[in-house]
Design a protein around this nucleic acid. Structure first.
Length: 562
RNA sequence: GCGCCUGUAACUCAGCUGGAUAGAGUGCUACCCUCCUAAGGUGGAAGUCGUAGGUUCAAAUCCUACCAGGCGCGCCA
């Protein structure tokens, strides 16, 4: 539909001797704030500057050059000050859009611009031996959604979970386990026990010992390697359960430890390329002239660091996947680290370094405005949030369906809880910190995941009660129908906007908006038994389809009944 | 001290590649189930868009300074 507007404008502008590419015109087009201002608007300010004429005048001229309206596609084309407003023939718009959505189904809004090129998306990346907290929840939810968005834009995402299974924190854990460890406790509740140990050993007095234990681990000390393996196995079991509950799948699950053997190669390569220098006993890449400080490669005791492993992993992934882009969905506090790593890769001569992107997210803060910290033992665990949300969902379901079977109850409550948590996170701009409020997560009213599920369930309910047909005639449209159609029309643009900024929140906000418009439509326009029954059923179906596509992008599941 | 991010209604947040009257949700308040699911809908009250300058025909949006919060700045990840 947008192309029609572009076509008309291009022709009119040509007559005024202004050459603009289709994409340029498309970029200038706006969707007016309300339906009575039309469906697309062309602002003339930009041309006013170029032609040194009054924008109002230009708008009038363009309107004149466009010529006849109405046509089959346009009901009217008006000027409003400096804008040329295009009013689609709403009946034909309604018919075209609904038909397109119903025939394209899950491909409506999909783009092929990605040409199946690979995009590596690293996300989640929890640390072994620590419980899955809300910190990693953000990366998991956002990263998953970003991978889905890339897929929808025609790329082939490679979902990568890069477990924090190596590093100095294992030195701490080893010291702690040797001092306070208890095999029985470990078997009974491994994560809880490991966290206890970690908190106990996270003290300055153990710093030296911890560093020694980590170095021993890196050098292959038998006892340490065995313990490390045990910790890892227990953790993986735990994480598998978490991902299953969340409905998250990865293409690859790797750990930092796998690059342990490649450390020497990397250091050798850096030396050969004359990037390494010794400083205060450690080996660094000096990035002062790039205003990025120093990137630490090797500690003074010879042990490696995070950056070293990230360099190795990036090079390895590029040789394996030859990716178009690599996205790291990691917290904002690691911004400098990634800038350094990407810079070092660039200095090493890897041209693809510019295709590595750190997609950062803000964190959950406590009500005091402070960050939660596992190190201080203060954290909010996913398990607790999930349980609390689920039990409230159960209560709500039972209120409506007192006789529901336990199995069905469990299933629905789970889907609702996941949607509440996912949506509650994704609706926020990822860059910002969020004040964590359990009440908000557990709330099912207003701008929430369950509201979206509810809207879908209502739509599905109509479908169940009426027989729809492929043939429909569009009668006069009510304002609520027009508003809904106008918004549904925007779905493809919304997806591409979300992709360009790698922001799932754009999809989330849009999903809420169409749900709200649907509920308004539902309230104002009876479907079954109305004169427009057949068209309205088709419109409901189009809404269901688009909201399904949105839910897919967000990683949440919908329910036919709730 | 330097760098990055943020500051919008009582609270939590959208809007930020400049554009037509600044939007939601929660809370408060008044209504709407003989009607396709009230987890809903309709109305009302509530805003110096942190402050002060600047750029522009046009600024919540861009620039500068300041104030406030978060994060980072060498052997953690």
């Amino acid at each position: 539909m947008k192309e029609l507007v572009v076509k008309l404008l291009k022709k009119a502008l040509k007559e005024k001797r202004i050459k603009l590419k289709d994409e340029e015109i498309e970029k200038l087009l706006e969707v007016p704030p309300t339906a009575d201002m039309g469906d697309y608007a062309f602002p003339c300010f930009f041309l006013a500057e170029r032609l040194k004429e009054e924008p109002k005048q230009i708008a009038l001229e363009i309107r004149e050059k466009i010529g006849n309206a109405p046509t089959t596609d346009f009901e009217d084309i008006q000027t409003a000050g400096p804008y040329v407003n295009f009013f689609f023939n709403r009946k034909s718009l309604a018919k075209k859009l609904v038909w397109e959505v119903i025939t394209k189904k899950k491909d409506f809004g999909r783009s092929k611009i990605g040409e199946k090129k690979k995009i590596v998306v690293e996300f989640s990346a929890p640390n072994i031996a620590k419980p899955f907290g809300i910190g990693h929840l953000r990366s998991t939810i956002i990263g998953n959604s970003i991978a889905n968005i890339c897929e929808f834009q025609g790329f082939k995402p490679i979902r990568l979970n890069y477990l924090g299974d190596w590093g100095a924190q294992f030195g701490r854990l080893l010291v702690g386990y040797k001092k306070f460890g208890d095999e029985k406790k470990l078997q009974k509740n491994p994560i809880k026990h490991l966290l206890e140990i970690y908190v106990k050993s996270n003290k300055k007095s153990f710093d030296k010992q911890s560093a020694e234990e980590f170095k021993k681990l890196e050098d292959g000390d038998k006892e340490n390697v065995m313990l490390w393996r045990t910790f890892k196995e227990y953790s993986l079991e735990e994480f598998d359960k978490v991902y299953k509950e969340l409905g998250i799948k990865f293409d690859k699950q790797l750990g930092e430890s796998m690059y342990n053997k490649k450390m020497k190669e990397i250091i050798k390569e850096l030396k050969e390329k004359k990037l390494l220098e010794k400083s205060e006993g450690a080996q660094i890449v000096n990035l002062k002239e790039h205003n990025l400080g120093a990137c630490l490669i090797e500690k003074s005791d010879g042990a490696t660091l995070y950056a070293t492993r990230d360099l190795a992993s990036a090079i390895d992934r590029h040789s394996k996947y030859n990716f178009e882009k690599m996205i790291y969905e990691v917290g904002q506090e690691q911004k400098l680290h990634f800038k350094q790593v990407f810079k070092v890769l660039e200095l090493m001569g890897y041209k693809w370094a510019k295709n590595c992107i750190h997609v950062e997210h803000g964190h959950y803060l406590g009500k005091d405005g402070k960050k939660f910290s596992t190190r201080k033992g203060k954290s909010v665990f996913l398990k607790d949030i999930l349980n609390e949300t689920k039990s409230l969902a159960k209560k709500e379901i039972k209120k409506r369906l007192p006789k529901i079977k336990e199995k069905e109850l469990e299933k629905r409550a789970h889907k609702i809880a996941i949607a509440a948590i996912f949506y509650g996170d994704l609706k926020n701009n990822r860059k910002n910190n969020i004040v964590f409020d359990i009440k908000k997560f557990v709330s099912f009213e207003g701008d929430t995941g369950p509201y979206i599920q509810y809207s879908y369930a209502r739509a599905s309910s109509i479908q169940r009660k009426a027989e729809s047909s492929e043939k429909f005639k569009v009668n006069n449209l009510d304002p609520q129908e027009i508003e809904l159609i106008r918004k549904l029309l925007q779905f493809p643009d919304v997806v591409s906007k979300a992709y360009n900024s790698l922001s799932p929140s754009i999809i989330a906000n849009y999903t809420y908006k169409i749900s709200k418009l649907f509920n308004e439509f539902y309230h104002a326009c009876p479907v079954i038994g109305s004169e427009s029954e057949m068209f309205r059923l088709a419109l409901v179906e189009a809404f269901r389809q688009i909201i399904k596509n949105c839910a897919y992008l967000l990683g949440i599941e919908l329910l036919e009944k709730m």
